[in-house]
């Protein structure tokens, strides 16, 4: 029984979890002989970083201006100063910090658990055809159910404390990450596995030194998608009788037509999600520096 046999089953299937990110999608080590430069590697992009950053800032400023204009034109929107002052009070009395902490904890725990389970399951599915056949229908099935729809079940089965909230976030993160990991394993270039084999590598070495690194880009993309799903599920999860949390605060504000608070919640979620995504992006850049990007 060789690695090839185990993997051969995984070739035909089309990509189920096509991820929104593009560049980490093809690890196939397609190396073009053209355009290879003989100078020192890495560092190429840093010089051009200033302009996009400036454009980003301009874009944000324009967006806020537009928002302000719409708010003053009579649309049902709070103005930026209203939102800022509300943010001030919410920060001042500690509500925002408590809410953010509660939400962040849920997202982080759910996301961490989801990823921690998804990566080994994805590896096992990619490596052993039998496990794949057993697990895949369930994953495909649960993928089609929005997390929101799981909530009634989760509440009945798990009560109304933290468990069901974390569970739905876990599920969202898990599903996004597991498919990506599995794809990564299935897509490992067979020539590289052959190269390792002729260099004396056994199955364990091939797994640790070829399959894992080769699927890392896929896993990281899966983690980023999973993180997005985790945040997306948060507000829904906090529908479940929460006492605090950004999603809870917004739903509470909704009862009183308290638009500024809703905006503070939205912006906080956006900023926290963005920061976490940047951290993952940084990790991705670091860990997949070897990839040829086009």
């Amino acid at each position: 029984m060789s690695v090839l046999d185990k993997r051969s089953a995984g070739r035909r299937q089309p990509r189920p979890g096509a991820s929104p990110d593009t560049d980490a999608g093809d690890t196939a080590a397609a190396d073009s002989t053209a355009g290879a430069d003989k100078s020192a590697p890495e560092h190429g992009r840093s010089g051009r970083r200033g302009l996009p950053l400036a454009l980003n800032a301009v874009s944000v400023a324009l967006g806020i201006a537009l928002w302000w204009a719409l708010a003053s034109a009579g649309f049902k929107l709070p103005t930026p100063p209203e939102v800022v002052s509300r943010a001030g009070t919410l920060i001042g009395d500690g509500t925002l910090a408590d809410d953010a902490l509660a939400s962040l904890t849920r997202v982080l725990v759910g996301f961490a658990l989801g990823t921690a389970v998804a990566v080994p399951v994805g590896f096992l599915m990619g490596w052993y055809g039998i496990l794949r056949g057993l697990i895949e229908p369930w994953i495909q099935f649960f993928r089609t159910i929005p997390p929101l729809a799981i909530i009634p079940l989760a509440v009945v089965a798990m009560g109304i404390d933290e468990t069901p909230k974390i569970f739905v976030i876990f599920l969202a993160a898990f599903l996004a990450c597991v498919i990506s990991t599995f794809q990564g394993v299935v897509n490992v270039d067979r020539t590289l596995i052959n190269a390792a084999r002729v260099l004396g590598a056994g199955d364990a070495t091939i797994f640790a030194r070829v399959v894992v690194p080769a699927s890392t880009p896929f896993i990281l993309v899966g983690m980023r998608v999973g993180l997005g799903s985790a945040w997306a599920t948060l507000v829904a999860a906090e529908l479940i009788a929460a006492q605090e949390g950004l999603g809870y605060r917004m739903q509470n504000a909704q009862l009183y037509y308290d638009l500024p608070t809703i905006f503070v919640g939205l912006i906080s979620i956006g900023i926290l999600g963005l920061l976490m995504d940047r951290v993952l992006l940084l990790a991705e850049r670091r860990l997949t520096r070897w990839q040829e990007r086009r």
Partner: peptide
Amino acid sequence: FQQYALFPWL
């Protein structure tokens, strides 16, 4: 190998 088959991460 005809395709070199270098490990791109090494």
